[in-house]
Every structure is written in C-alpha cells, then in structure tokens.
C-alpha cells in the first residue's frame, strides 16, 4: 500500500513539527510570529504532498550498506569523549578516546605493530593540537572539573 515508507514517516514527522511551530507561534507578538506561521503553513502543505506521494511512487535513495556495530561503538565513544571532556579534562579524555577510536576502526588485518604506531602518532597529534590551541590561539581548553580544588 505505502510505496515509500521512508517518505511516509518523514512526512508525518514534519507534519508534527509544523504543529509544534504553530504552538510556539501562539506565544509570540505579531511581528515575531509572521515568518514562523508562514513557513509552518508551507511545511504543512509540503508534508501533505509528500504523504500523498508516498502512496503513489518511490524515489529510491542510494544508501550503501552499513556496519552497524562499528557505528554504534563509534557513536558511544564520540559521545563519551564529549561528555567527559569537561569532567576529566581535555588531555586525558582525548588521549583515551582517540586511542579507543583507533582500535575500533582497526580492521582485522592491522598488525599489533601498526596499531601501536597509530596510537603513538595519534597521541603526538593530540598533544600538538592541544598546546597549539591552548597557547597559540588562546583557547581555554577544559582542565577537568574533577581536578579542581
């Protein structure tokens, strides 16, 4: 029945989004509400078009197949990197996370020697950029809340 499932779901999502926009617009003054209402209305119109179209035809999207495990691991480490950045400080977090990511992305054919080389090069890279940003560009990178007195 539904030819294009993804478009169907997307159209519902955007329909709900327009609803949220309308809701927010009720709290706004006249001038500030003009554009949100206008765009929200256009979005409703387009969502309905997409919905109708999803029953009639499917425009194929070219998506290459994906290794789910690696992505999930990567996303977890990536998020963890950001989460711990301010807590345990920039250097420690970055060094740990960077090397974890190296290991995650290693394929079966990478030798131990190569892995160690990558991790060393990565460590140097992290340190180089850390000091470059901190001292040359004067960016105050987090020291670590856990270590503050």
């Amino acid at each position: 029945m539904i030819k294009d499932k993804i478009s169907f779901i997307s159209s519902i999502v955007f329909f709900i989004l327009s609803g949220l926009v309308y809701l927010d617009a009720t709290t706004l003054s006249d001038f500030a509400a003009v554009f949100p209402l206008a765009i929200g209305t256009i979005l409703v119109f387009l969502s309905i078009l997409l919905l109708v179209r999803s029953f009639k035809l499917e425009i194929k999207i070219h998506n290459d197949s994906v290794l789910k495990l690696k992505i999930i691991l990567l996303v977890i480490v990536f998020f963890g990197w950001i989460y711990f950045l301010e807590r345990s400080g920039f250097i420690i977090t970055s060094l740990i996370a960077f090397n974890l990511l190296v290991l995650i992305n290693c394929e079966n054919k990478t030798t131990i020697k190569q892995k160690i080389f990558f991790m060393t090069a990565g460590t140097i890279f992290v340190l180089l950029l850390y000091f470059g940003f901190k001292n040359l560009l004067q960016v105050p990178l987090p020291e670590g809340l856990w270590f503050r007195h």
Partner: peptide, 16 residues
C-alpha cells in the same frame, strides 16, 4: 619526524 614533532611541541610549550 617523530623527534621533530616532539621537540616542536616542547618548543611551543616553552614559548607560551
């Protein structure tokens, strides 16, 4: 190259 990089890191630290 590794030695160069390490020394430049130390240099940068020193400068700043």
């Amino acid at each position: 190259i590794k030695k160069l990089i390490v020394s430049s890191v130390i240099l940068v630290m020193g400068i700043a």
